[in-house]
């Protein structure tokens, strides 16, 4: 991909900018679609219809209309807010969540940066989002925002540990941090996926990763940072218009990022599930996005099924359930890999 663009344009700076902007062409339409999808799923699960008017067929243009409205809204900054940090925070949050896309392999031919430590990079760069959330919550100068930001940061920091341990188990099996290498190791039929390798350790690892990643992106049942009934809207209570849209966009970008990592680690990424059938760089994008969207669907499904956890239950699940099981997975996989060698 990079070589092709270099041949075409003969300008390094331009090519790198283009490569960096390419995932945006997926993230923005995805967020628009996912908001609509979420509203439809919630509506159908509650025996409603959801948006039906805008655009004709099942209200498909509803979120496009919404975003046009948000762009036009007046830019309001509360007079008691810390102006500089209030303005900076949404950009920082979005930069953090978008930075993860630099290492996500969309296909055998396209990955923003094919760095050797891609997986490690994705885990670490998400910490910028935490700082951004804290900035948004603090700068709003509103107690709900501050509580939301604090809860969010505490939750993300706690659940990073089971996520990292589950990922470590996969890394031990693959022997690499390179996401493309991990994809290549899972090629062939679907039983080559890491989900079914070293059974049942990596299967358990995938469950731990999925549950902990729900907490990382503040989705129900772990949505106490923005619990509407307690905190109004959490860290983005004071945000409106375009800045709110940016925070919302980065939330959906984060959702897809963790789903994409789950798809790559456990479901074979861009590999076709049926051997050589419909495989190749272009079909790779299709398979990758399908697997990612499957995880997105499960996230939405859970959101409208499960009630919210309390703060103490949240910490209990993180520290006393997920982390011990994650250690079992790491040790089990470690011994297995050592014994096979």
């Amino acid at each position: 991909m990079k070589e092709f663009l270099l041949d075409l344009l003969h300008n390094e700076a331009l090519v790198y900018t283009l490569m960096a902007l390419l995932p945006l062409a997926w993230v923005v339409p995805f967020a628009l679609f996912a908001v609509w999808w979420e509203r439809k799923i919630s509506a159908h699960m509650q025996d409603r219809l959801g948006p039906m008017r805008t655009g004709g067929y099942h209200g498909w243009a509803q979120t496009i209309a919404d975003i046009l409205k948000l762009i036009q809204k007046e830019d309001i900054i509360p007079s008691a807010a810390d102006r500089k940090l209030f303005i900076l925070a949404p950009y920082l949050v979005f930069a953090g969540s978008y930075a993860a896309y630099a290492a996500i392999p969309f296909s055998a031919a396209y990955v923003g940066s094919g760095i050797n430590i891609g997986l490690f990079y994705v885990i670490s760069i998400s910490s910028i989002v935490v700082v951004g959330l804290l900035m948004a919550g603090w700068a709003s100068n509103n107690k709900w925002s501050l509580f939301g930001a604090m809860r969010s940061a505490a939750q993300i920091v706690s659940y990073e540990i089971p996520v990292a341990l589950a990922i470590l188990a996969v890394v031990m099996v693959a022997g690499s941090f390179d996401l493309q290498e991990i994809n290549r190791l899972q090629s062939g039929w679907f039983w080559n996926w890491f989900l079914f390798q070293k059974f049942p350790f990596l299967f358990l690892g995938s469950l731990i990763y999925f549950v902990a990643s729900l907490a990382e992106v503040n989705r129900t049942p772990f949505d106490i940072p923005e619990a509407e009934s307690e905190l109004v809207a959490g860290y983005h209570t004071e945000y409106g218009g375009m800045r709110f849209a940016l925070l919302f966009l980065s939330e959906y970008a984060n959702m897809f990022a963790v789903s994409a990592i789950a798809a790559t680690l456990f479901l074979g990424g861009w590999n076709s599930p049926f051997g050589e059938w419909l495989s190749g760089p272009f079909w790779g994008v299709f398979w990758f996005l399908t697997k990612g969207m499957t995880f997105i669907f499960v996230q939405m499904w859970l959101r409208w099924t499960l009630p919210r956890l309390r703060v103490d239950q949240l910490m209990y699940v993180g520290w006393k359930v997920l982390i011990p099981f994650a250690f079992v997975v790491v040790i089990g996989v470690g011994f297995w890999v050592m014994a096979v060698r």
Partner: peptide, 12 residues
């Protein structure tokens, strides 16, 4: 590692 430890841990 710098980002993971200093930004994700110490700064938070």
């Amino acid at each position: 590692t710098q980002i993971l430890i200093y930004v994700g841990g110490i700064l938070v």
